[in-house]
Design a protein around this nucleic acid. Structure first.
Lengths: 128, 128
DNA sequence: CAATCAGATGCAAATATATGCATATATGAA
DNA sequence: TTCATATATGCATATATTTGCATCTGATTG
């Protein structure tokens, strides 16, 4: 398989990991520091199984890493720079300026949340 | 539905537009200037229907714009920087190692082929 | 110190839904 | 009519969601 096919396939796969609302939200939440499965579940307001399975997708694709502490499993972003890259891309993805209102405001909201302070927790504690 | 949910959904949908190998390839090919449907079809080596349908997805989401010239329809990126941005994303895929040797060199090769000069055509001609 | 129990999470099978693709058909320009 | 492209339809595959069960860990009880 030609190199460009391989690269395109990998890129597409990477994007498909990001193309699920729950996973987007998880990344968003983890942007401000590690969280355990149950708090993610609570914030997202979805079933534990759904939370767990979407975390599995992120984990399998190495977007997050886990840390076990007792009965709880804490997740964090494995490549914080990734969030920055995504952030940059938003303005290209929104295409020309006539993208739908919904999408534009969604991007705006994401920009604000994602560019926020990078996890006080990550900087200070990191106790394990 | 809370605005965060809406936002996450929009973001996810935006990413899903990029989560198909053909569409990634189209974007990268258009990175070096506008092309008509049939040359895209030829480069990708897929059916015309498939080409057209994936172009439709990109068009609907305003990532590309069309220009008709006689019987031919030329496509170009709405935001030319999009191609380069996606290409940068390769490094995150490489980043989470376990990427095989073969894959790494495929990435390298793809990078070279895709990072060609950014469309002299866009700068000069634009004849229509 | 077992033995047991409950909380937190993972995993699997079944079903629902979405997406991709090829074939066929339609449009629009020369 | 023919060429270039677009769209519709139906089927196959993939992805998501729920339900139920398994596992692991820490706490409790006897």
């Amino acid at each position: 398989m030609p190199s460009r096919d391989i690269a395109a396939k990998e890129l597409a796969k990477a994007f498909s990991v990001l193309s699920h609302p729950d996973r987007v939200r998880i990344i968003e939440e983890l942007g401000s520091g590690e969280k355990d499965v149950n708090s993610l579940r609570a914030v997202l307001g979805v079933s534990h199984s759904r939370t767990s399975q979407n975390l599995a997708v992120l984990r399998t694709n190495r977007l997050v890493t886990e840390r076990r502490d007792g009965r709880h499993v804490f997740y964090r972003l494995s490549q914080p720079e990734l969030a920055g890259w995504i952030l940059e891309g938003l303005r290209f993805i929104e295409g020309d300026l006539q993208a739908s209102e919904a999408r534009l405001s969604a991007f705006e909201e994401a920009r604000q949340k994602w560019s926020g302070e990078p996890a006080s927790e990550l900087l200070v504690t990191n106790r394990d």
